[in-house]
Every structure is written in C-alpha cells, then in structure tokens.
C-alpha cells in the first residue's frame, strides 16, 4: 500500500467518507423509480475511489447525495464522522457537464468559489496557479462560448480545485476530452491528488482510467445500484498502463459489468 503510506502525511488534507446503507428513489409521474439500493462503502482520508457501473444506474445520483445537494431517502452519509447536511465547499463536485456560467470569463468562473465564500482577495494567486495547472492561463479572459468542450471541462476542474477541497467529487470529468488530452490529464490528476492529498471520488465509464487512477474500484449493478464488487488496486504510482496485474483486474471488472463474452 504505497499510496496509502503517502496519504499519512496528508492526513489533514483529505477527509474520510462514510456511505452507509444509502437508498434513494425518484418519483416519475406517480411511479417510483428506485435508483440506489442500500449502498455502503467507506473512503479513507486521501483515498482515491473510482465508481464504475452501467449507464443510468445511479452513479451521478450518489455523487449528488455525497455533495449534499439532496438528502438521501434512507441511510446516512458522513464526512469525517459528521453527518452531511448540505453542500459545503469542502466537498466540491466537477459535474458531468462543465456548466460554466456563460456571462463570466474563464477566470471569473474559476473564482466563483472564493467569491461565494467571501475570500476572493486571498485567493488571487491561487486562481492563477490553478489556471496554469489546467493549462488555460492564456484563456483567462475568454468567455465560455469561445472554449472547446475539453477546455471547458478543464475550467470546471480548475473551478473545483481552487477551493482546496477535502473531498473532490468527479463525475466523468475527462469524458469530453480527446484521448490524448485525456491521458495527460489522468497523469496530471494523479500527481495533483498525490500532492494535495484530498480524498477523491471518481465516476467513470472507462475501466482503464479507473485502474490507472484509483486505490479502489467499486463496481455497481444495474439500477437500482448495489455495490457489486469493491476491489483494491494495490499498485504503486505512477502506474504503467500495460501492467499485467491491471490487465487481469480489467478483465475481472469487465466481467462484472457483463462484457466477458466479447473481451
């Protein structure tokens, strides 16, 4: 557990997350749609947990609950042992869709968190730093409609990072990037996470991405989502994409996702 050893020194940065027996449902035209069914898992401080599951199974819904945007129908959520009662900048979400505010420049979009929390002045330097980190310093004054999809997604990432969250919640943040940028950003994400030490919850469709990034991979069943498997990925960083152990894990996960026949 090389990665976990590293996290010890960042114990203050990352928060632990407890997801305990969470169930959730939506009402669609008087019909009840069960989305999450008694989902439980824990993330240690500074751990990188990837969530995999079929489309529409309830991954984004789970992230919304962890973010505190909605209360769960049943079960409890705790950050560092304290019940999650609502949104808090210590748990920042990068949504599936970048959702930049079109009337704000790139820089002002990134500055949204500090501005909302009333600490804009103190964060000036940090904003520039984060913009440089995602490679968009020269686009600080651009408007969202002038960006490509991948650039917008990077702005969304910067907007989250600038808050120095304790839990970073990522909903397919690299989904819109081209494969090359995607690989670069994956490596960036790893080094960023190693440096900052926040706990990360990453939803992705890409099994290889999950295995390249995470300490643990949690596989969900079809809707209503249940935890189908909780697999540790005991490999040091930086990881090698062609690693035979990872290939074996990948085969196993694809099997869990019902793709064994074709792979």
């Amino acid at each position: 557990m090389v990665a976990l050893a590293q996290q010890v020194q960042h114990a203050t940065a990352g928060a632990s997350l407890e997801v305990d027996n969470i169930s959730h449902h939506f009402a669609i035209e008087d019909r009840r749609l069960d989305v999450l069914d008694k989902v439980s898992f824990r993330a240690a401080p500074g751990e990188f947990v990837a969530l995999l599951g079929p489309s529409g199974c309830g991954k984004s819904t789970l992230l919304r609950l962890v973010a505190g945007l909605e209360p769960p129908a049943a079960g409890s959520l705790k950050e560092d042992g304290i019940a999650i009662a609502g949104p808090d900048p210590s748990r920042v979400v990068v949504f599936q869709d970048p959702t930049l505010f079109p009337w704000r420049t790139v820089r002002d979009n990134v500055a949204l968190g500090p501005e909302a929390q009333g600490g804009l002045k103190a964060k000036r330097a940090r904003i520039d730093e984060v913009l440089a980190l995602v490679g968009l310093s020269s686009f600080a004054k651009a408007l969202p409609h002038q960006l490509s999809g991948g650039m917008a997604q990077r702005v969304a990432l910067a907007r989250a990072l600038v808050n120095d969250p304790r839990i970073l919640i990522l909903d397919e943040p690299l989904g819109k990037l081209d494969s090359l940028t995607r690989l670069t950003m994956q490596s960036e994400l790893v080094s960023l996470w190693q440096r900052a030490g926040f706990t990360t919850l990453l939803v992705t469709h890409d099994v290889e991405e999950a295995l390249f990034l995470a300490n643990r991979v949690i596989v969900f069943s079809d809707r209503p989502a249940q935890v189908k498997a909780d697999l540790p990925v005991d490999k040091p960083y930086p990881r090698h994409r062609g690693d035979p152990d990872l290939a074996e894990l990948r085969r196993q996960i694809l099997g869990l996702l019902g793709l064994d026949a074709t792979w």
Partner: peptide, 12 residues
C-alpha cells in the same frame, strides 16, 4: 445545474 454548481462552492 447553475444553482447546484454555485451551492457546492458555498454560495448563499
């Protein structure tokens, strides 16, 4: 979604 983004960033 605009409100969701702002709320997770600590907006009142």
């Amino acid at each position: 979604s605009y409100y969701d983004v702002a709320r997770t960033l600590g907006a009142t």
